[in-house]
């Protein structure tokens, strides 16, 4: 099926076109004109590997560390998230100030996130899930990698939850 012809606009008024559907995730707004061969994606694989190692070594994929965080029994997780945000903020500020470009020479764009009530309801529900599983989505992948194979069930259940959201999204408040 060719998504580029905007056939959806007639079928589905709430979601006008493909770009709008994708943009429901701000992650998905980037529309690069550049066409790359598939192996250009290997750099994301490599950065993912580093990130996975980092998650394990930082112990943020530990169910116990998450429990400590939600009981205010350890500074560890607050230190990690806090310092990550500070470094991220400084980086984004520098990127904007010096108009840093991507390695392909494209200007870097960060799309704004729109407010919706979903950030409240969904945020609370994710918080419940985070305290139960002791993992947010990134750590799920890393936990499976470390050999906790039962977390595959958690991941499949999370995929089911995502699918259920897609199925019901027009009936719940946003």
């Amino acid at each position: 099926m060719n998504y580029k012809d905007n056939t959806l606009s007639t079928l589905n008024p709430p979601l006008a076109d493909e770009k709008e559907i994708r943009s429901l995730d701000t992650v998905c707004i980037n529309e690069s004109q550049l066409q790359h061969k598939w192996y250009h994606n290997l750099k994301y694989l490599v950065s993912g590997i580093f990130f996975g190692i980092l998650l394990v070594k930082a112990e943020v994929i530990s169910w116990f560390r998450i429990q400590e965080m939600f009981r205010l029994q350890s500074f560890h997780m607050y230190g990690i998230i806090g310092s990550a945000v500070v470094v991220g903020m400084i980086s984004v500020w520098l990127i904007k100030k010096f108009k840093v470009k991507t390695i392909y020479g494209e200007p870097i764009v960060i799309s704004p996130k729109k407010f919706s009530k979903g950030q409240i309801y969904g945020g609370l529900l994710f918080g419940f899930g985070w305290a139960l599983t002791g993992a947010c989505p990134g750590p799920l992948f890393a936990q499976i990698g470390t050999g906790a194979t039962v977390v595959l069930v958690t991941l499949l259940s999370a995929i089911a939850g995502t699918w259920f959201y897609g199925w019901i999204r027009e009936k719940i408040p946003h």
Binding site: L24, D25, L124, S157
Partner: peptide
């Protein structure tokens, strides 16, 4: 495992992102 995972998947998408996003 199962209920927790479901809430993670449903909640993050409803909220439009997780801890990283």
């Amino acid at each position: 495992i199962v209920v927790g995972g479901f809430l993670v998947g449903f909640g993050t998408r409803y909220a439009g992102g997780c801890t990283s996003g």
